[in-house]
């Protein structure tokens, strides 16, 4: 089973990279994009096949390493 982890900046935390990407998209003529926030996508290949059993471990991994919860949120999806 795979755990798909999205790490995103918390609302209110300035994202200069997202802003720069937004400016570049506008410069390329992409209109109607109100904002860009950049994050990370991390895929974990798990031995565990039960989602509810895997969730606490993956959440712990997110809190301890994959995300810095001072500035980042994380969301976990399972696949397979």
């Amino acid at each position: 089973m795979k755990a798909k982890v999205h790490v995103t900046l918390k609302a209110g935390v300035l994202d200069p990279q997202g802003k720069a990407v937004h400016h570049a998209l506008e410069a390329l003529g992409f209109a109607g994009i109100n904002g860009v926030r950049q994050g990370k996508f991390i895929e974990l290949d798990l031995a565990e096949t039960d989602r509810e059993k895997a969730r606490p471990m993956v959440e712990d991994a997110c809190r301890k390493l994959l995300a810095n919860t001072v500035i980042e949120n994380f969301a976990i999806d399972f696949e397979g």
Binding site: V13, P16, A20, N68, V70
Partner: peptide, 17 residues
Amino acid sequence: LTEAGMLPGVLMRNRKL
């Protein structure tokens, strides 16, 4: 030290990148 939780806060990418 911030990542290890020994000091508060975090060092983010420079404002002007």
